[in-house]
Amino acid sequence: MSGCGKYSDWLTEAGVGGLAPHHERELLAHAAECDACREAYRHARELGEIVDRGVESLVSGEPSPHFAARLRARIAEEPTSSWRTWLGLYSGVSASRRLFSFQGAVAAVGILVVLLTLGFHWLPPNHPVGPTVAGKQNEKAPDSPRAPNPGAPIVESVQPVSRLHHGARLLASRSQPEVLVPPGQLDAVVQFAEAIRSGRVDTKQLLAAQQEAEKPLEIEPIEIAPLAPPESDVALAPATNDGRP
């Protein structure tokens, strides 16, 4: 077993498959002539297999068949997750949470209305209005800019951004609407935008519903037929005239 010292150092590496190919060839060539090294090599390889099988046995197995059911039961006990409930509209949301979401939405709309209203009243009398609507606005009500035409849409009657509270910008135009996203609801707004874009929400139907609500009441004029003079007056009139000198 002369010159075996070098190869014994390689045996562990060879056992776990880490020996360089040219070293492995050299080791095998030596093992072919050396019984002790051949046996040691075989032992090393088998030890490597034992390690692999041993570790594999530690991580083999499946969770019990009830795993998923148990997990679902635990999930059901969880407070509703945020991703299940944007605005609390999905089924399975607790009533209190839905109410909370509804209240939040109402509050957000209320704040928006207040901001828009304040925006109206803060406009200076001679403040320039938007380029497209300014002319019409001034022509219609030059003396009362604080009292916009009630029939005109809000978005078209107020333009300046800097005058509004905390950067609350009014809508620039109907073709490019702006929305105020309350804190924490950006996901919901983006989802809504994507729903519109992907066609999951019928925008025509949505707009039609909105326009229907905004449509001014149409009151048909009452046609009043002119009163016909009573027959007795007609009969008397000529007589009176005739009696005059």
């Binding site: 609350a168 935008a193 729903a195």
Partner: peptide
């Protein structure tokens, strides 16, 4: 009020910038 103002274009840009399928409903997440 510390919300974020987004107009239609900005919302489209934001939605487009998200990975495909990143914005879906809660049901889809389920």
């Amino acid at each position: 009020m510390t919300g974020v103002w987004l107009n239609g274009t900005e919302m489209d840009a934001l939605a487009a910038s998200l990975p495909r399928g990143a914005v879906t409903s809660g049901e889809s997440l389920e």
